[in-house]
């Protein structure tokens, strides 16, 4: 008898508290939910179609894309009050040839209104030199250099009549984390405060990004395939990374 009274006394405020929270629009600090990000791969506004469609770079040179893969990692969300949440173990490999890999789901994110998102294009310094990894970072994905440890952050392969490489190939393997050829770039974008990313227990928003593959070849330096058609780390990779740092991703809209 006494014991159950005790329990009741304990329970009451808990029930009160939680009902309290629900009645207002405020979100409880300790609830978590899910959101997703869709990466829609394009080339200068047209859908990216591998192997067949011909595109033009900023120099007006024709090219086709056979492979387009890139890492998005260390996703960080910020609220208007400046508080941030770094999503732990957030490493994703987006592969244009695998539709299921262009839409990523982020679980266990504290509910709330977020007004900024940022992430690494590539993989942070430490993981490039860490021991054997699995998941998105598994070397089986063909994004790890075995002779010079580290990940390929962005991989674009294709062809261009202007390329002087055998078979007119384009080989852009961008990576490397040590100066002067560090290619780690961070992308950040503000989210319209009127329509923030609203993560709720009963709402799983989707962010829609447009990814422009042609951004590798323009922005800071217009790339001509006659002079640059192959890079696997090094100074030329830095040129490409500086191009895509700002131009690769654009937040198009959010479905809350």
């Amino acid at each position: 008898m006494k014991l159950s009274q005790y329990f009741l006394a304990l329970l009451c405020p808990i029930i009160l508290l939680s009902s309290c929270k629900k009645s207002t629009d405020e979100v409880a600090a300790d609830t978590k939910s899910t959101f997703s990000i869709e990466f829609e791969n394009q080339v200068n506004g047209s859908p990216l179609v591998l192997n067949t469609t011909t595109y033009k770079n900023a120099k007006g040179e024709d090219f086709k894309i056979n492979v387009f893969k890139y890492y998005v990692s260390n996703i960080k969300l910020s609220k208007a009050d400046g508080t941030t949440y770094l999503i732990p173990e957030s490493y994703f490999l987006i592969d244009a040839s695998k539709a299921e890999l262009t839409n990523i789901t982020l679980k266990d994110v504290p509910t709330g209104n977020y007004t900024k998102i940022e992430y690494t294009i590539g993989v942070d310094y430490a993981r490039n030199f860490a021991g054997a990894q699995t998941g998105a970072l598994d070397p089986i994905n063909g994004m790890f250099w075995t002779w010079n440890s580290g990940y390929i952050f962005v991989k674009l392969e294709g062809t261009s009549p202007q390329s002087l490489a055998p078979g007119n190939t384009l080989t852009f393997h961008i990576g490397g984390v040590t100066d002067p050829n560090n290619t780690i770039r961070t992308f950040a974008t503000e989210i319209n405060a009127a329509n923030p990313l609203r993560i709720r227990t009963d709402g799983k928003p989707n962010m829609h990004f447009i990814v422009n593959a042609a951004a590798l070849f323009t922005g800071k330096t217009d790339v001509s395939f006659a002079t640059l058609n192959m890079t696997m780390g090094g100074a030329n990779s830095v040129i490409v990374a500086n191009n895509y740092a700002n131009g690769l991703f654009r937040l198009d809209h959010i479905h809350n």
């Binding site: 021991g131 054997a132 790890f144």
Partner: peptide, 28 residues
């Protein structure tokens, strides 16, 4: 490696596995 290209003991067998001239295979 002789040039210090590989940075972790755990990933050091990968090159031999995939090199066409060593074991000539792949992880899959």
């Amino acid at each position: 490696f002789w040039d210090g290209g590989v940075k972790n003991i755990e990933t050091s067998p990968l090159n031999a596995i995939t090199d066409a001239c060593e074991m000539g295979t792949d992880i899959q």
